[in-house]
Design a protein around this nucleic acid. Structure first.
Length: 695
DNA sequence: TTTTGAAGTCTCTCC
DNA sequence: GACTTCAAAA
């Protein structure tokens, strides 16, 4: 309690929770970081060293010091991380911490742009384009410029968008990106520029913002409008940034602008866990932090509280192979624990059976399912496992992957809501027009053009003269949109009711288009359930773009923390979390690292760090498994399958205990030795069944 | 001009 | 194995 006196007397609080004894509850390094006064602070925190804890205590300490919670901004990588930290802070200092602003960069940008946008020439009611919307719009630009005619091989919309996004997020000139990543398109550099110009103009003319715009406009607001910049930057006295190793140049610019008045910036990161270079993140942000912010204090957290020593030995060894990194050796005071397992399975189904059996075994030993996780490189790699878990009635949540919102039918329904919200939303107009029977590309283009000519007024679509074959569909759509527009009011459940109206039309279209409609209809039911939780359409549409439901439990079916569910997750989505038992499956070269990421040393290094992230999630039990015979349906596989991941080299493998799953001969597959003459000809029976009627 | 059928093209990570 | 793109038919 002595240390408590070192701090100024606390403000009177409405609900004092308890006295936080910072010195007793944190180790020396954590304590130094949490109680750091003002000015820039860099916390280099290895995996499992209490990074989140330190950040939470720092927030608590700031509040105890008298910093008003609403003047603290906590930027995290996922919505989940923000919620978790704020919940933990609340336990420390009580409800006051609810005033802290926490969220992702994009979510925060969105909030600020809605508020300050009108003062900077942005429309107040812009629509957010997700990645595939942005790609679709890029396609419209490409077509409008007449590029991509069959004659020459012009980059696809995905490529165009990737280059654009990379350029915006990294400040690397387009030409340099092309030379680096797409040498075959260097000749098109000028065309890239033209497409990007049209794309930008098109977004602006239609009140559309893509993900990159959210960050870009935030940065520009701070850099080129002193008046607004003062207002925006003046909102916060302290800024804390989690996972700083995964921020990019644009985000660094934003932070610089946000704290230029007070320089009260705390960043936490681990260079060994940098796994978002594909999104423009650069390790340079964390490496250059001390230079960028003169006088920055640096605190390094090296004591690991998470994993047993044998697990730590294995992960330390794994990351020691990395080319370039801050040297830090994690240690723990935890004793005991067994070596992690390296499991060789004969094939995928054996791997699956092993994982499920072992999970049940550990569950028998008293580990709840929610304290176990299965991690993999990419979403689709858990397909077999999901089937088995379902068959065996083991509840699970799957994290990562955006499949639900990316599904065409979900986007279709959202398109209806989006044109209601923003009649200029060209991307959504195309999407829904093309759904209508009798309307194809040409008619859709004409319709959009005629709406643009009428300045996108609400009646514009009604006035459009469709060709005869599209008349019926056009009339139905006009009626539907008119109905929905007339049904004003912001009452609870309104969005869900709108979806009901839309589905009255759309479900039939769905039935026409797909053979298997049930799963798709149930996706739409889920969408409706989610919509029910939002007060109005605009909030719903923004939220769904910025905070996609990341697990089935997010979909509103009451899967609380109470429920005991196993977690399946991509390695990326597992970042920042920990479990008692962790299974890393598909540790096969070509899968982890993925074949696609073998192009450059940098990419391979990122894959290595990703595996490091996955393995360091484990507290007490870690099993890494790889199937020997992965039969590969993909053509032209130029990588060796059925090889253990290159990251698990001889030396690293020494830190594991090997478990080889044997193939057990199945007696039922051996012909019965007693068999004599056939008793019945089964083939003839079957053949007769399909004999032509008059044969 | 729209629709339909068939060949062809990739497969990731996420706000 | 799912989705896009291309070519021919309605």
């Amino acid at each position: 309690m002595n240390d408590a006196r070192a701090y100024p007397p606390r403000e009177r609080r409405v609900e004092p929770k308890r006295t936080v004894d910072f010195a007793a509850e944190l180790n020396a390094a954590q304590h130094a970081a949490a109680t750091h006064r003002d000015g820039p602070l860099l916390i280099v925190a290895g995996a499992g060293t209490g990074k989140t804890r330190t950040l939470v205590y720092r927030v608590a300490h700031l509040i105890e010091r008298g910093v008003p919670p609403q003047r603290i901004l906590l930027l995290t990588f996922t919505r989940r991380a923000a919620q978790e930290m704020l919940a933990r802070a609340e336990k420390l200092v009580g409800q006051t911490s609810r005033g802290v602003h926490g969220g992702t960069f994009h979510g925060t940008a969105h909030r600020l742009l809605r508020r300050f946008g009108p003062e900077t020439g942005l429309p107040g009611d812009f629509t957010i384009l997700d990645q595939s919307d942005a790609e679709d719009l890029m396609q419209l630009s490409r077509a409008a410029l007449g590029l991509g005619d069959k004659t020459k091989r012009f980059p696809k919309k995905e490529t165009l968008h990737h280059v654009y996004s990379r350029h915006v997020n990294t400040d690397i000139p387009v030409g340099a990106i092309l030379r680096e990543e797409y040498p075959r398109f260097i000749a098109f550099e000028d065309d890239f520029a033209r497409v990007f110009a049209d794309y930008t103009a098109r977004k602006q003319g239609r009140d559309l913002l893509d993900y990159d715009d959210l960050l870009l406009y935030w940065a520009l607001m701070l850099e080129s409008a002193p008046g607004i910049a003062d207002k925006v930057a003046g909102l916060y006295d302290h800024i804390l940034v989690d996972e700083y190793q995964d921020t990019n140049v644009l985000q660094a610019r934003i932070l610089k602008g946000m704290c230029r008045m007070h320089r009260n910036i705390t960043v936490v990161g681990d260079d060994a866990q940098s796994i978002y270079a594909f999104r423009g993140a650069t390790i340079r942000n964390i490496l250059d932090f001390p230079r960028e912010y003169h006088g920055a204090a640096t605190v390094t957290l090296e004591e690991n509280y998470r994993s047993t020593q044998p697990i730590l030995d294995a992960t330390n060894l794994l990351i020691s192979r990395a080319e370039e990194r801050f040297s830090k050796e994690l240690f723990t005071r935890r004793t005991g624990g067994e070596k992690p397992w390296l499991v060789t399975a004969q094939d995928e189904s054996q791997q699956t059976r092993f994982v499920v059996d072992r999970i049940l075994e550990l569950h028998e030993e008293g580990i709840p399912l929610r304290e176990m996780a299965v991690l993999f490189r990419a979403g689709y790699m858990s397909a077999d496992l999901e089937i088995e878990l379902t068959a065996r009635n083991i509840p699970f949540d799957k994290w990562g992957g955006l499949k639900f919102l990316e599904a065409a039918h979900v986007k279709d329904v959202l398109a209806f809501l989006r044109v209601l919200e923003n009649p200029r939303d060209e991307v959504s107009w195309y999407r829904l027009l093309l759904l209508m029977p009798g309307i194809g590309e040409v008619t859709a283009r004409n319709a959009v053009q005629s709406m643009a000519d009428l300045a996108w007024s609400h009646e514009a679509f009604g006035r459009f003269q469709p060709p005869p074959r599209a008349r019926e569909a056009h009339a139905a759509l006009v009626r539907l949109l008119g109905d929905l527009r007339g049904n004003a009011g912001g009452d609870e459940g309104r969005v869900a009711r709108e979806i009901t109206r839309v589905r009255a039309m759309y479900d039939d279209i769905l039935r026409e288009r797909y053979d298997r409609v049930e799963p798709r209809l149930s996706d739409l039911d889920q969408l409706q359930t989610i919509a029910g939780g939002y007060p109005d359409r605009s909030t719903f549409l923004s939220a769904i773009a910025l905070e996609p439901p990341s697990a089935t439990s997010d979909l509103g079916f009451g899967a609380d923390a109470e429920d005991d569910t196993l977690i399946l997750s991509t390695a990326h989505s597992s970042k920042g979390r920990e479990w008692d038992a962790v299974f890393v499956i598909w540790a096969v070269d070509g899968y982890f690292p993925m074949a696609r990421a073998l192009g450059s040393d940098d990419e391979i290094e990122e894959e290595r760090r990703l595996m490091y992230v996955a393995m360091t999630r484990a507290r007490n039990h870690l099993a890494v498994s790889y199937p020997l015979n992965a039969y590969d349906t993909r053509r032209g596989a130029d990588y060796s399958i059925d090889q253990v991941s290159r990251f698990l080299d001889r030396g690293v493998r020494k830190a594991f205990q090997k478990v080889v799953l044997e193939t057990v001969a199945d007696p039922s597959l051996t012909p019965d030795a007693d068999a004599t003459a056939p008793e019945v000809d089964l083939r003839a029976l079957l053949k007769n069944r399909f004999a032509p009627p008059n044969a």
